[in-house]
Structures are given as structure tokens and as C-alpha cells.
């Protein structure tokens, strides 16, 4: 085909650009990643043991297992909340007419663009028992959000809030309402229509959104740092642990924990591309 031959024509510029892009990505991303991996298994520090055994041993330290456990807890609840809320609000935005619908659709996107520090500060100013708007009321009810796990779950849920919505809304718009209307005209109630018609068609979008939310939640740092006490065995999540250990010159542990999170992110990338393929076929 003529167009392919035109586009596939290669001059010196083609090779120049290719070399430039490869070099840029190597220096910016690939080489640093490689360096992290090699430091994880062969620390530079004096007396630090090398190898897979030493790496696994560092991860079994009680403060490290606590940190990953806390990260998992926060991520789990944030994902559950965001999935239920995300699917619900996507249905409302695409299927119903109500005043303020467009404003709401813009508002739900804000959490992604707000600086994590601002998210943390916002939650503190609203809910801390000292200075928060609602802190006093909550305190008299015996509820403490800031400095405890519920606050950290809220911070995590805040930053990953739009991810499910962003995946589900386009699919809901694309499939339209014909099948749903047909189902309800044949006597299906709302729940039946949702479970038998809507859910199967948004299934992959929901799974995709969940994976994205999970990846984002596992790695959240800034917002959680501000609402958490952030001390060892007390509110120290995996990402906070990395910062604390690195600044305390315990680099081997910092690198070991970071490597686990790198693996988790790469795994998420792979799963996401597999889902996309599944979705297309």
C-alpha cells in the first residue's frame, strides 16, 4: 500500500529520533530502575548482606511486616469504598437527569489533581480533634479520625476516588440504554436489570478501575503521611517506612521495601494490559 510505504520510509531522521528516545528513556527510567534492583540485592553499605536471602530477611522485620499490613488494610478499604461509590455515581451520572449533574461530573475529577499534601491538610482541618471543623463533635462522640487508621483510609480513598468512575462512565455511555429499557419493559426490576444487563457489560471496566485504584492506593504517600502518626509500628505505612528508613541511613531496608512496591506496580501494569486484551477479544 502506498501509504504504508510513505510512512515506513526511513531516513537519517528516523534513526536519530529513535536513538534519542531510547537514550532519554534509558537515562531517565530504565537505568535508575536497574540501579534500585541491584542495590536491593547488593547493598553498597558496609556490612550489609547481599542476596535474595538477606532481602527476604529485611522484609520479615516486624516493623516492615506491620507497614505492609497497614498499607494493605488502607488500600483494601479504599478500593472497596471507591468501587461501590464509583459504580453508583457512574450510573447516576450516565442514566439519570438531575440538577447539577454536569457540575458533579467535573467535581468528581478534582481529587486526582489536588496535591497529596493539600488532601492531607484538608482532612486535618476538617476532622482533627484539635483544629478540625468537626473535630470537637467527633471527639465528644469518641471518634478519632486523624492520627488513626480511618483517617488514613479516607486519605487513600480521596486520592484514588475518580479511577473507577473514569473507566466505567465511558462504557456506560457507549452501551446506551436500549437493553436496559428493554429489560425493564419486560418486567425486570431495577436490581435485576443492573445485575443481568448492566453489570456484565461494565465488568471489565470495573475490574480495570479496581486494579488502578489498588495500585494507586498501595503507593499513596503524601496524603497518608499527613494524617498518620507515621512512627514505627504506629501508623507507618510501606511508603512512609521507605522515607523514614532512607533518612535514618537504613538504606538496605528502604530499598527492599521499595523493590516490593516496584514489583507491585509492574505487576499492575501487566495485569492492566492483559485485561485490555481480554476486553477487546
Amino acid at each position: 500500500m502506498a501509504e504504508t510505504s510513505l510512512r515506513a520510509r526511513r531516513g537519517p531522521v528516523t534513526y536519530l529520533l529513535r536513538t534519542f528516545v531510547l537514550a532519554y528513556l534509558a537515562v531517565l527510567v530504565v537505568w535508575p530502575l536497574w540501579e534500585v534492583a541491584s542495590r536491593t540485592f547488593a547493598p553498597l553499605e558496609q556490612g550489609a548482606e547481599a542476596g535474595l536471602g538477606a532481602f527476604l530477611e529485611r522484609l520479615q522485620d516486624p516493623s516492615v511486616t506491620y507497614a505492609f499490613g497497614l498499607t494493605a488494610t488502607c488500600a483494601f478499604w479504599a478500593v472497596v469504598i471507591n468501587t461501590v461509590f464509583g459504580v453508583g455515581i457512574s450510573l447516576l451520572l450516565t442514566r439519570y437527569r438531575f440538577p447539577g449533574r454536569r457540575v458533579l461530573s467535573v467535581l468528581v475529577d478534582i481529587p486526582m489533581s489536588v496535591s497529596p499534601v493539600v488532601v492531607g491538610l484538608a482532612l486535618v482541618l476538617a476532622y482533627s480533634s484539635g483544629q478540625g471543623w468537626f473535630g470537637g463533635v467527633l471527639e465528644s462522640a469518641g471518634i478519632f479520625i486523624i492520627g488513626s487508621t480511618p483517617g488514613m483510609i479516607m486519605a487513600t480513598a480521596f486520592v484514588s476516588l475518580p479511577l473507577v468512575i473514569r473507566e466505567v462512565v465511558p462504557v456506560l455511555e457507549e452501551i446506551g440504554t436500549d437493553a436496559e429499557l428493554a429489560a425493564s419493559s419486560l418486567g425486570a426490576n431495577g436490581w435485576q436489570t443492573f445485575r443481568r444487563i448492566t453489570l456484565p457489560s461494565i465488568k471489565w471496566a470495573v475490574v480495570y478501575g479496581v486494579v488502578l485504584s489498588l495500585a494507586r492506593s498501595l503507593g499513596e504517600f503524601g496524603a497518608v503521611k499527613i494524617v498518620s502518626p507515621g512512627a514505627e509500628l504506629r501508623g507507618e505505612t510501606a511508603t512512609i517506612l521507605i522515607q523514614n528508613r532512607y533518612t535514618n541511613f537504613e538504606e538496605p531496608t528502604a530499598y527492599a521495601a521499595a523493590f516490593v512496591l516496584v514489583l507491585a506496580s509492574v505487576l499492575a501494569l501487566v495485569v492492566v494490559s492483559l485485561i485490555r486484551k481480554e476486553d477487546r477479544s
Binding site: V36, G219, F221, I242, A258, L261, A268, L269
Partner: peptide
Amino acid sequence: VIDIPFALPTIVAGLVLLSL
């Protein structure tokens, strides 16, 4: 590779750059 900077937790991104 392009997606990796998005996928990495930000604190890890900092550590990754510092290692090199």
C-alpha cells in the same frame, strides 16, 4: 516503560532517581 513513572509510588520514584 512510559507507564512506569505513573505506576510507581512517588516516594519510590524519588528513591529510584537517587539510586543513580
